[in-house]
Design a protein around this nucleic acid. Structure first.
Lengths: 164, 164
DNA sequence: AATAACCTTTACGTTAACGTCAATTTCATG
DNA sequence: CATGAAATTGACGTTAACGTAAAGGTTATT
C-alpha cells in the first residue's frame, strides 16, 4: 500500500518540454532555478532536471509575476510564502504579515488598472464620436469608413459592458 | 481677451522639482524624453526644460505603465494614442484599433490579478487556521500569539471583504 | 555499443532602464 | 555683474533577465 502511493506520482517532463509548454526557453527556466525560484528533481546532481506538476504551478506563478511587473526577486519572496514551514509559529506569523502586504499591493494594482481602463474607454469613445461626426457630415462617406464604424462600435461596447 | 488666455497658463516647474514630486531622478525623466515619451517646453533648444500640467499627466501614465510591467516602448505606444491627429481619419482608425487591443490586455491583467488575489487570500486563511489551532491546543498559549491573532484576523477580513 | 538527440555547465554577450561622473551653461540673487 | 546653485550634454558604468555559443555528459533508439 505504501508502494501504490509512490507508483502513481504523476508524470515528469524535461526542461525543453516545460519550456515549450510555456513558450519560453530552457535557459530562462535554468535562470529561475539559479535565483532559487525553482528546484526540480534530479536522479543525480549531474543528470537531467525533471519537472512535475508542482514545478509547473510555480513556473506559472513566476510568469504571472512577470506580467505584473514584479521582479524575479520579488516573485521569489511571494513564492517563499507558499512553502513556509507550517510548524514554526514565528515563521507563520511573518508569512501571514508578508502575505497581507502583498494582498494590499495587489488591490492597489487592481484599482489603478481599473482607472486606466476607464480612462482609455472614455478616450476611445471620444475618438469614435469624432469619427462618427466626420462620417455624418461627409456628403459622400467612404464605404470603408462605414464598415469600420459598424464593426467597431459593437466591439467597443462589448468591452465596455464587461463587468470587471 | 486673447491676452488673458495666455496669461493664466499654469505654472511650469523645473526637472528636479518634477523629479522630487514623483520620487524619481532627473536622469530618469531625461531618459523618458530621450525615448520620446516626454517633450517639455524650452525657451531655447539649449535652455532648461520646463514642465507643465500636461507633462505631469504623461509622467504619471509612464510610471503607472511601469508598475504594470509595460516597457517604456509599450507605454510610448499607448501615449501616442492620446495625441493622434484628430483630423486624419485613417489615423483615428488605427488609434481606435490600438486602443481596443490595449483595453483587452488590461482586462486580462485585471482578471489574472483577481485570481492571484483569490489564491493568496485562501492561502492566508489556511495558514491563519493552522496558527489558530496551534493556539487552541496549546495549554499555555503565548500572549504575543494571542495578540497577533486578534489584530490579524480583522485585518485579513477587511481585505477579504473589499469589493474589487 | 554506437549514434543522434538532448541535456549539462561555463562563460561571455546583449538590451532596457537607468546611475554616475565630468565638463560646461544657464539661472537666480545679492 | 559676479557667483553659487542648478541644469545641460556627453560618456561610460551597472543591474536584471535572459541569449548564445562552446565543450562535454546523458538518454533513448537502433
Amino acid at each position: 500500500m505504501g508502494a501504490a502511493k509512490k507508483a502513481g506520482e504523476g508524470k515528469k517532463i524535461t526542461i525543453s518540454e516545460l519550456a515549450e509548454e510555456f513558450g519560453i526557453t530552457p535557459r530562462a527556466i535554468r535562470y529561475y532555478e539559479e535565483l532559487g525560484l525553482l528546484c526540480p528533481h534530479r536522479k543525480s546532481p549531474t543528470s537531467q532536471r525533471l519537472y512535475d506538476e508542482k514545478d509547473r504551478v510555480r513556473l506559472k506563478l513566476i510568469l504571472r509575476g512577470k506580467r505584473f511587473g514584479f521582479s524575479l526577486a520579488e516573485t521569489r519572496e511571494i513564492l517563499e510564502l507558499y512553502e513556509a514551514d507550517p510548524t514554526e509559529r514565528r515563521q507563520i506569523q511573518r508569512t501571514l504579515e508578508y502575505g497581507l502586504e502583498h494582498l494590499l499591493e495587489i488591490d492597489e494594482k487592481i484599482d489603478e488598472l481599473k482607472e486606466l481602463r476607464r480612462e482609455m474607454l472614455e478616450f476611445a469613445r471620444r475618438f469614435l464620436k469624432i469619427l462618427e461626426s466626420m462620417a455624418e457630415e461627409d456628403p459622400r462617406p467612404d464605404p470603408r469608413l462605414r464598415k469600420f464604424l459598424e464593426s467597431y462600435r459593437p466591439r467597443l461596447e462589448a468591452v465596455a459592458k464587461r463587468k470587471i
